[in-house]
Design a protein around this nucleic acid. Structure first.
Lengths: 252, 252
DNA sequence: ATAGAGGTTGACGTTACGTCAAGGTCAAGA
DNA sequence: TCTTGACCTTGACGTAACGTCAACCTCTAT
C-alpha cells in the first residue's frame, strides 16, 4: 500500500514540488517508481518525510537534515549547533533593530539624541564596530580610553564644545555665506582644532593624513543622517563638508 | 576629481563587485564612464554610495533603498516598515528557539517533559499552530476549552491516565510481543477509547474518520520525537503505530 | 474512446553579491 | 617604445529551498 506524490504531500502537509525537490537532491527517494516515472511513497517514506518536515520547521537546512537522516550526525548535536546559530541570528537582529530605531529617532529630529552622543556624533559603545571599521581598532581603543579617562565634568565640557560648534555651523549655513567665506573657513579651522583633540585619529598623530581624514569626515557628515543631524540635516552637512574641503586644500 | 571603482570601494568600505552590481541594477550609476568602459565616481556619487551602505547595514533591501533614493518613499517610512518586519523576524526566531530547545530537551529524555505536557503529548499553548494545522482550528478550540474547563484535579487525573497508558505501551513493546497480539490490541482499544475523550478530534464526533485519524496519529508518533518520547522512543512508537494500524483495520 | 485530473522533466525567478574566467587598458620603468 | 603588472570589462555560475509556468505524457472513470 502506497501513495501518489500528491497524496503523501497532503498527508504530510507539504507540496508535490517539495517532494520532487527532495528526490532531486537525494534527501528522500520515493519507495517505488512506476514504469511511467510516477513516484510512489510507502509508510516508512512517510515517516522520513514527517521527520524532515519537523526538522525543517525547526529551521534546519536540508544538508544538515540529510546528515541526521544518514546517521552521520546525532540529531541532538545538529540541533544544538543549530540553536547556537539561531541565538547569533537573534542577537544580530536585536542589534539591528536598535540601530534602526536610533536612526529613525535621529531623523525625526529627536533633540535628545545629540545631547546623548559624543565623539563627533557617535556614542562609542553603540557604534563600536562602525568606528573600528572606518578608522581602525587602535583608533577606537585610543579614543575610548581617552573618553573614559575624562571626568563627567570634562565630558560635559567636551559635549558643550561640540554643541557650540554644531550650532555655529548651522547658523553659518543658514546665513547664506559661501563655504569659502572667511566665517566658514574660521569654523573649519575650529573644527579641525577640535578634531585634533580626539586621540587615535589621524588629526591627532604627527604625520597623520589629516587632509584625507578631514575631507573623508566631511563626506561622512553628508552621507550619514546620524552625523548630518548634528549640522542641521543634509544641507547643513553639505555646507560643512564643502567648507572643510576648501580648508583642507588650502591649509593641510 | 574622481575615483576609480576600486578607490571608492575602499573609501566607502565595500567591493568593486558591489559597485558593478549597483550599476547593473541601476541603483548607483558611475558619474562618468571612460572610453574604455572604465567606471569613475565623483563626490556626490560617493555620498549616495555611503547612504546606500548605511541603509544596507540597517538591513534594508536594495529595491527599498532605490525607492528612498529616488525620493519616491520617505526614508522614515521605509525604515519604520522595515522595523516592523525586523520585529516579526525576531518574534519568529524567538519561537523557533523555544521549539528547538523543547525538542532537544525531549530527546535528551527529560522526564519532566512528559509530566508537564498533556493533550496526547502536546501542550496546547506551546503547539497551538501545529495542532491547528494538523487537525483544524475547530479541533484546537474545542479541545482547548475542554481542557481549560477541567479542574486541576481532573487535569491531573487525565495526565495520570495518559502516563499509565504510555507506561503500559512501553512495557508491552519491551516484552517482545507482536503488535497484533491480544495484549497490544487491548492497549490499542484503550488508546482509542482514551482518544474519544478528547473533544474536537475525529474520534470524538459521530461520523468522524476515526480510522484515518488513528492510523495517521500512529505515523505521527513515530515521526515526531516529541511524541515518540511518550512511548519510549522510536522503537516504542513504531510498536504503538503498528498495533494501532492493526486495530484500526479490524475494528474501525 | 475521451475528458479531466494528475504526473514528468526542464528551466527561470528569488537576494545580493562572491568568485572565477577570458581578455582589454593604464601607468610606469627599462 | 616596449613591456609588465595592476586594474578594468563583460559574462556566467553558485547560493537556499522551493514557487511557478510550460510542454507534454499518464491514469482513471465514464
Amino acid at each position: 500500500m502506497d501513495w501518489s506524490i500528491q497524496e503523501i504531500a497532503k498527508i504530510a502537509g507539504t507540496t508535490s514540488r517539495t517532494l520532487r525537490h527532495y528526490d532531486d537532491i537525494g534527501l528522500l527517494k520515493p519507495s517505488r517508481t512506476g514504469p511511467s516515472g510516477y513516484r510512489y511513497y510507502d509508510g516508512p517514506a512517510l515517516v522520513q518525510l514527517q521527520r524532515i518536515i519537523l526538522l525543517r520547521e525547526l529551521g534546519l537546512g536540508l544538508p544538515a537534515i540529510a546528515e541526521v537522516l544518514g546517521r552521520e550526525t546525532d540529531t541532538i548535536k545538529a540541533l544544538t549547533s543549530h540553536l547556537e546559530w539561531l541565538a547569533r541570528e537573534q542577537d544580530r537582529l536585536t542589534r539591528q533593530i536598535a540601530s534602526v530605531r536610533q536612526t529613525i529617532d535621529t531623523m525625526k529630529g529627536d533633540g535628545q539624541y545629540m545631547a546623548q552622543n559624543m565623539f563627533d556624533g557617535f556614542d562609542h559603545t553603540q557604534y563600536k564596530d562602525e568606528v573600528e571599521e572606518h578608522w581602525g581598532k587602535e583608533a577606537y581603543a585610543a579614543s575610548d580610553s581617552w573618553w573614559r579617562g575624562m571626568s563627567a565634568e570634562e565630558q560635559q565640557q567636551w559635549k558643550d564644545r561640540m554643541q557650540k560648534l554644531g550650532a555655529d555651523w548651522i547658523s553659518a549655513a543658514d546665513s547664506g555665506v559661501s563655504p569659502a567665506s572667511a566665517e566658514a573657513q574660521d569654523l573649519a579651522r575650529r573644527h579641525v582644532e577640535w578634531l585634533r583633540g580626539i586621540p587615535g585619529t589621524p588629526s591627532a598623530v604627527p604625520g597623520g593624513d589629516v587632509k584625507g581624514y578631514v575631507t573623508g569626515l566631511g563626506e561622512m557628515y553628508v552621507a550619514d543622517p546620524r552625523f548630518a543631524a548634528n549640522y542641521g540635516g543634509e544641507s547643513g552637512a553639505t555646507f560643512v563638508r564643502d567648507a572643510l574641503r576648501v580648508y583642507a586644500e588650502k591649509n593641510l
